[in-house]
Design a protein around this nucleic acid. Structure first.
Lengths: 178, 178
DNA sequence: CACAACATGTAAGATGTTACATGATTGA
DNA sequence: TCAATCATGTAACATCTTACATGTTGTG
């Protein structure tokens, strides 16, 4: 669902070929949203079949021929209505559904010391991830679209929140031995 | 993947029947991790086929017969190794990959006023979600496992982070009209 | 009597992951 | 010449969502 609109959104800006779409994901949203060819090419095929995009073949300079896709009228329409209407429904929730949380749920079967060890290692990893996001955010000043920059900032803020949570839990467990 | 271990984890505590497993998800992790029968029953069948759990039929008091599942030796083994070994690999990243972020990425095509409107509505919704988590957290004092309570707290912290982010973006956009 | 809660599942379709398969060009 | 980058895709498998299908028990 989401990928379909992501692709339409990029094609609504200008025509792209498949490889290039993947590139744009890696470059601008890579840390946040990466896609595989196994997802991308079938999505392009489906959009083509449903008439939301059109295809033109261009000789390749460096490698194989490029399949350059452009958005059609109906494609533009459905992208616009996704962009404009879906915020009204407002189903967007913040979720903490991730595998680490699930693992954490079962930590009550481990010794407190073992848990503290795991949590402090996780704290370190999150700290590193945070630093790299922070750096990306600072480096992007002035040369990045304000929306894209805000997304990186969002990452920084949530990583900081995760650090805060881990620190809190470590404190709680340290002062409340089973 | 994750659901498989979640189910094994619950069965490692004591035997459960299908409906009961779903209940435990709703009650303890409902806001965070909800599952459907369309996921659960096939997962139970696969675990049974692979010998990680066993099944015993119990007459139902209120409705249909219950299929009570217990964990087997191999099931216990793979759950333990997931619990103990997977934190070492440490692939657990905090991700901001959600549909609202994708939508936001394309907001540069809308007018700033329209975006400000959408963001402030989202801020309200997140504020409500935060209040309900905060309430759940406060209500749980003293009567909930410390790990489960911490997961609710995690939700509160990330919702607060989301609020902070939205507020920041609203401020930035308000002071930088296109 | 209707409706909520109890209890089990299947089927179809969408989506995502991973590995495989192919071949050209560029630079060290 | 060898690896990296460019460029396209398919196939198998796993997973998730949604809707459908069935029947019982307790409560207002």
């Amino acid at each position: 669902m989401a990928l379909k609109f992501a692709v339409l959104g990029l094609l609504d800006q200008r025509p792209h070929y498949g490889y290039e779409i993947k590139q744009r994901f890696e470059n601008s949203l890579g840390d946040i949203w990466s896609i595989s060819y196994g997802q991308l090419y079938p999505t392009l095929r489906r959009l083509l079949e449903s008439g939301h995009i059109s295809k033109r073949v261009e000789p390749g300079q460096k490698a194989a021929e490029k399949n350059v896709y452009s958005i059609t009228h109906t494609g533009h329409e459905i992208f616009q209505s996704w962009l404009e209407d879906s915020p009204k429904d407002g189903q967007y929730k913040v979720s903490v559904k991730d595998e680490f949380t699930l693992l954490f749920f079962f930590f009550n079967t481990l010794s407190t010391n073992r848990v503290l060890d795991i949590l402090s290692k996780q704290l370190n990893r999150i700290g590193e991830q945070r630093s790299s996001y922070e750096k990306a955010f600072l480096d992007s000043e002035g040369n990045l679209d304000i929306y894209l920059r805000s997304i990186i900032r969002k990452g920084v803020i949530h990583l900081e929140a995760e650090r805060q949570w881990l620190t809190e839990v470590i404190d709680t467990l340290s002062s409340n031995p089973d």
